[in-house]
């Protein structure tokens, strides 16, 4: 009884800062709190299979290892080789090209579709549920489905002349990867924009309508600025995603024709698991970690996880 009386005012003050756990208050009878042991299983899983490999990959980049026996330290050899490797430069170039093209095609389409799907009409809800169908397929399934659809002899591509041999030319294969990854991921980004567009306060549009604004003006001066944070979140997810495409490359083009669609993760996989140069592949992986981490830290910095969560709630 005494405890309840004492607790009430504290809760009132807590309500103003709900995000933080209650600070320790030694004077009051202890509330049951979990010990840090509750963290242990998660910490073990994460430590052994996610955090430790991240450290180990940096270590392995200073070794030579062919997959059997122990990795042997060879100092900076892999790194010296990496800096002078023209193919790695090519591969990085291809990855960045795919990233830029992917962003430049996916963002406007997802933005427009998301804003459209956020509208009130009933048919939009039905159409949206069709739009999201690609999300139900795994990356492997999407890549394999398209590799058959783009089959030059029997596929859809055979019906449409200019696309018949799209996977046979370097620029065609790159375009196919941009298209297929767009087909797969635009629905996800559309979801983000749809949720965000629904949260734009209606009064802004009402006020603009009274002022005689055109639809274009409303989109440009109300919708876009209101979606600014979502554009940042979505773009960052897109960019980090494109840096790590793997299944699509392996199953759609297998890096070809030639090495024209090799990306950084694919090059790392080939060097490691096909040529058994695990040390050198680890150096490539380290580069990938550094770039992806830098960009992901920008996600956390610009958008913050809390906002990401509220975006999910909005669905």
């Amino acid at each position: 009884m005494t405890a309840t009386v004492r607790v009430a005012p504290e809760d009132g003050s807590d309500a103003t800062a709900p995000a933080r756990p209650v600070p320790r208050r030694p004077s009051r009878p202890a509330t049951s709190r979990p010990s840090s042991w509750y963290l242990l299983p998660a910490a073990l899983f994460f430590g052994v299979f996610a955090a430790f490999p991240l450290v180990l990959v940096v270590f392995l980049s200073f070794t030579s290892w062919e997959g059997i026996g122990d990795p042997a330290l060879i100092g900076l050899d892999n790194w010296v080789r990496l800096v002078g490797d023209a193919r790695v430069l090519d591969v990085v170039g291809t990855t960045l090209l795919l990233t830029v093209l992917g962003w430049a095609t996916q963002t406007p389409i997802a933005l427009l579709l998301g804003v459209w799907a956020a509208g009130p009409q009933r048919n939009r809800a039905i159409l949206s549920s069709i739009f999201f169908l690609p999300l139900l397929l795994s990356s492997a399934a999407v890549a394999l489905m398209w590799s058959r659809l783009l089959d030059p002899y029997f596929g859809l591509a055979a019906e449409f002349g200019p696309f018949q041999n799209i996977l046979g030319t370097p620029s065609g294969a790159l375009a196919a990867i941009v298209f297929v990854t767009g087909w797969q991921f635009i629905p996800f980004h559309t979801l983000l924009y749809q949720a965000a567009a629904r949260n734009v306060p209606k009064v802004l549009y009402d006020a603009a309508t009274i002022d005689g604004a055109t639809r274009w003006h409303m989109f440009w001066y109300i919708t876009l600025p209101q979606l600014r944070n979502t554009i940042i979140t979505s773009s960052t997810i897109m960019v980090v995603g494109s840096l790590t495409y793997f299944e699509t490359i392996l199953l759609l083009t297998n890096g070809g024709p030639g090495t024209s669609t090799y990306t950084v993760p694919f090059e790392m996989y080939i060097r490691g698991f096909r040529s058994f140069e695990f040390g050198y592949a680890s150096a490539i992986a380290t580069v990938l970690v550094v770039v992806a981490t830098a960009i992901s830290l920008i996600i956390v910095k610009f958008s913050g996880f809390a906002k990401m969560r509220s975006t999910m709630e909005g669905m």
């Binding site: 990959v57 592949a281 992986a285 990938l288 970690v289 996880f305």
Partner: peptide, 12 residues
């Protein structure tokens, strides 16, 4: 941990 790309850890 959200930032770790799984692809980069496959060798370790």
């Amino acid at each position: 941990g959200l930032a770790i790309p799984a692809q980069a850890t496959i060798i370790p």
